[in-house]
């Protein structure tokens, strides 16, 4: 088990290096250090000397990938790429171009993001599974049909409509929650509740349908028939047996969602003014702050890989037939 985890972790290193190279190349292709300097030095009255100064100050005066002028191994190490990536590999995110400690900012902004994403994820999962189980329970009746049709219609509506409509209705017209903003601690509730509800509602169509198919696949199996034949009530059959066995495909889907927790936050956070990581990323892109973008991409990749390993481990817990090799 531990050996397996270690092997998977080692396997993650080349992937992280690949991610680094790719993002780095993409970002510097669009954004030369000169551009960055100008952007950060402001609008009026910028001199070329100031740009050079800025680049030296922020470590952008070396070549990108290959330093022909440096001696020996320095040809590869005295480059912007090497300097930035090496620190990243050991989670030293360094400073953003505006001079702030990225690691500190990420740690600060993580909480608002999680305050939205975790409830959306957990409550959402519970709601989706119960709704899906309900349609399975009532399969063949008009309730099932109505539910499925509703689900298709709901998943055909862009998330933007839910967010725009929900914000308009609940915050502006009904004045039930603040329009935007955030607060720490328990006071966060009133800011978080609407984004969470909207996040869950916007995902209900697709997820409910997906889980329904998982359950329907398990429903006709022999063990389910046996359980029913033993006289277990339908509810008990569904929760004890069908749900447990359908957990494997559900888990796969759930882990795929983990990296997108970041991305999903992008829309919600910018609509509701939540000072989380999604907003941080958008800000960084708008202000062309390479350090932050690089750190976020790297973090995203790490989380994704962690997610993959966690799935594998979860499999063994849910399904004893799966053995790690």
């Amino acid at each position: 088990m531990i050996r397996y985890i270690i092997r998977r972790l080692l396997y993650a290193i080349p992937i992280l290096v690949g991610v680094n190279v790719l993002t780095f190349a993409l970002f510097f292709f669009v954004n030369t250090p000169n551009d960055m300097a100008r952007f950060h030095l402001g609008i009026k009255r910028v001199t070329p000397q100031a740009i050079t100064e800025w680049k030296i100050e922020h470590g952008y005066n070396d070549p990108l990938f290959y330093n022909a002028r440096a001696p020996g191994i320095d040809k590869l190490t005295r480059t912007i790429f090497f300097q930035h990536s090496v620190k990243l590999l050991v989670f030293d995110f360094g400073q953003s171009d505006s001079g702030r400690d990225i690691g500190y900012d990420i740690r600060q902004r993580m909480w608002p993001s999680l305050a939205i994403q975790v409830p959306t994820f957990v409550v959402g999962l519970a709601v989706y599974i119960s709704v899906a189980l309900m349609t399975v329970f009532f399969r063949g009746t008009y309730l099932d049909l109505g539910g499925v049709i509703l689900a298709v219609v709901m998943m055909s509506i862009s998330m933007l409509f839910y967010v725009i409509g929900g914000q308009y209705l609940f915050s502006k017209v009904l004045r039930l929650v603040p329009i935007s903003g955030y607060d720490t601690g328990l006071s966060a509730f009133k800011f978080v509740v609407l984004p969470v509800v909207l996040g869950i509602v916007s995902g209900i169509g697709a997820s409910m349908r997906l889980y329904r198919t998982f359950f329907l696949e398990e429903a006709p199996r022999d063990y389910v028939r046996t359980a029913r034949a033993k006289g277990l009530s339908e509810i008990r059959v569904l929760f004890r047996h069908v749900l447990k066995n359908a957990m494997i495909p559900i888990l796969t889907g759930v882990v795929v969602v983990i990296p997108t927790l970041f991305i999903g936050g992008l829309i919600m956070e910018s609509f509701f003014g939540i000072p989380g990581l999604g907003a941080y990323t958008i800000d960084a892109v708008r202000s062309q702050d390479f350090g932050i973008v690089h750190a976020m991409v790297y973090l995203g990749a790490v989380l994704y890989i962690v997610g993959l390993i966690m799935t594998d481990l979860a499999y063994t817990l849910v399904d004893p037939r799966v053995r790690l090799e």
Binding site: S171, K172, R175, P178, I179, S180, G181, S270, G273, P275, A279
Partner: peptide, 18 residues
């Protein structure tokens, strides 16, 4: 000074007296 990225929420909050 509150961080407000967009004009719409700012305006709505102004109309609510915030």
């Amino acid at each position: 000074f509150i961080r407000e990225r967009e004009t719409i929420p700012y305006w709505d909050k102004f109309m609510q007296g915030y």
